[in-house]
Amino acid sequence: MDEAILERLEGGSGIFVAEVDGKLAGFAMTSDPGQATHNGPAVRALELAAEDEPTLRRFLYGPAAVSPAFQGQGILSGLLVDLSLRLQEQFDQGVAFVDHANERSLAVHRHFGMSALSSFELNGSLYTAFIFHPELFTDRLA
């Protein structure tokens, strides 16, 4: 990602950052659907989500990453709760896509209870679209 893309994402639904003792522990990017027009897999994932439930307000989730030093410490869980709390008034559903070459990411999305939609092929790569409602994470606070 170049600086222009990062600036555009910051101006949309947001980039969420986790710090531990002043060190970057992880991040999760989100974007408004209109910001994804340059990203073929994102566009297709949004289309699949709209086929499933056409009237929902959506945001695109990802990429997200946790520093190896902080993995297994709940950083991604915290980021998902935070972004869901902050975005739940604006959006009904998060949409993500994962390249099948990234088996770890596929497992993480399933582990967190995101619902897999159909898989799709684009430019020689196979992807799965995932959806989730912010309540999936905000309800964990109750």
Rank of each mutant, 00 (worst) to 15 (best):
R44K: 15
L80H: 04
V81S: 03
G14W: 12
P41S: 05
N39I: 07
M114K: 10
V108C: 06
G113N: 02
F16N: 04
R8W: 02
L60W: 08
P63I: 02
D82V: 00
G11R: 15
L106S: 09
F16A: 07
L126N: 12
E121K: 12
Q35S: 12
D92N: 05
G113Q: 10
E10T: 06
P134I: 04
L79I: 01
F97L: 03
V108W: 04
Q71C: 05
P68E: 01
L106Q: 12
F27K: 07
M1F: 11
G74T: 03
A45D: 02
H100F: 07
H100I: 02
T128M: 09
E47T: 07
L136V: 04
D82A: 13
L79N: 01
S125W: 04
F137C: 02
P54F: 09
R44H: 07
V43K: 13
H133I: 08
G124S: 07
D52E: 14
G124Y: 04
T128R: 12
V20L: 05
L83C: 11
L6H: 12
S77I: 00
G72Q: 02
L6P: 02
D32Y: 02
A65K: 08
D82W: 02
R86F: 05
P63F: 03
G14N: 09
L117C: 07
A142G: 13
P41H: 09
G94S: 02
A69R: 08
P33N: 07
T37Q: 15
L60F: 14
A69K: 05
